[in-house]
């Protein structure tokens, strides 16, 4: 395929500017973050930080903010599970049952993402407000105590977290379901498989790449999210992102913020690699 001589330099020339950007503004910062996490915690922004290889920053950060770290993974895991359960039927219908409504439904999934993420999150304050229809209905159904509320509870944070990243679940699922050959489903039916069997034995295994991609695209950003916890929760619902934000922008404790960032990233990487091992090799991109 490749044309000799000149052809060997061309790809590097094409890659150069983009790679340079990523190395300078993604890779180098990551190294600097790791370095910052080992700075002397006694330093400050004004006096400067000394590199003391203070690995103690890590246990200190976990001791102080282990709860928020755990909550991040708990909420994000729950949101991912909910997004999968909610997103799968929707993706299934769009890919296989929607017919000529397919494009319109896809637009309905994508278009909300164009309305500012913060503004939509704030809209949940209205939806879940104490005088709102949802709280009223849940109180009437006795699912909520007469004075129970949704705002400022983990339920509100997880509801909104799931909502925020649901499109990132639906779209990869849709992509993998749409690629599925409907004749396979017909063939399974012709071979006397019941609908549930067709789903379990044919549809679900063939859509696994979408499930893997969707869960990753939901779980990773949800774990680092702190906007939902800040806007819809209280400090009791704070996730690690809230702590990192405060460490860098309010308390100006860079080593601790950096240590928490690195911990978050490492934990996510470990979970992702574990999940990919279990769910089988996924096609990247």
């Amino acid at each position: 395929m490749s044309r000799s001589g000149r052809g060997r330099v061309v790809p590097y020339l094409l890659l150069l500017p983009g790679l340079l950007w990523l190395v300078l503004f993604f890779l180098a910062p990551a190294v600097q973050l790791a370095a910052t996490s080992l700075y002397d915690p006694a330093g400050s922004l004004t006096s400067g930080y000394a590199m003391t290889w203070s690995f103690g920053n890590y246990p200190d950060a976990v001791a102080a903010y282990g709860a928020q770290l755990g909550r991040s993974f708990g909420y994000a895991g729950l949101a991912t599970l909910l997004a999968l359960l909610l997103g799968y039927p929707l993706a299934y219908v769009i890919a296989l049952r929607a017919g000529r409504w397919q494009y319109l439904l896809l637009v309905c999934v994508v278009a909300p993402m164009f309305t500012s993420f913060l503004v939509r999150t704030l809209a949940w304050k209205t939806v879940l407000s104490d005088g709102g229809a949802v709280v009223g209905l849940l109180r009437d159904l006795h699912l909520l105590a007469p004075d129970g509320r949704l705002l400022a509870t983990p339920a509100a944070v997880v509801t909104s977290l799931t909502y925020c990243y649901l499109p990132f679940m639906v779209l990869p699922l849709y992509a993998s379901l749409q690629r599925l050959d409907p004749r396979l489903l017909e063939a399974a039916g012709d071979l006397f498989a019941r609908p549930a069997q067709v789903f379990r034995r044919v549809t679900l295994p063939l859509s696994m790449p979408g499930v893997v991609a969707g869960t990753l695209l939901t779980f990773i950003p949800a774990t680092g999210d702190y906007v939902n916890a800040e806007l819809l929760g209280t400090p009791n619902e704070y996730m690690v992102g809230n702590v990192i934000d405060a460490a860098f922008l309010v308390r100006l404790d860079y080593p601790q913020g950096a240590a928490l960032s690195v911990l978050l990233m490492v934990a996510i990487l470990a979970l992702v690699i574990g999940w990919l091992r279990r769910a089988g090799p996924a096609e990247a991109g």
Partner: peptide, 20 residues
């Protein structure tokens, strides 16, 4: 390298750039 920023939570992207 191209996919890594997508797989990195935004907090980590933001804080590392700030650190740099």
């Amino acid at each position: 390298l191209v996919l890594a920023p997508v797989a990195t939570p935004e907090v980590v992207l933001g804080t590392s750039l700030l650190a740099l």
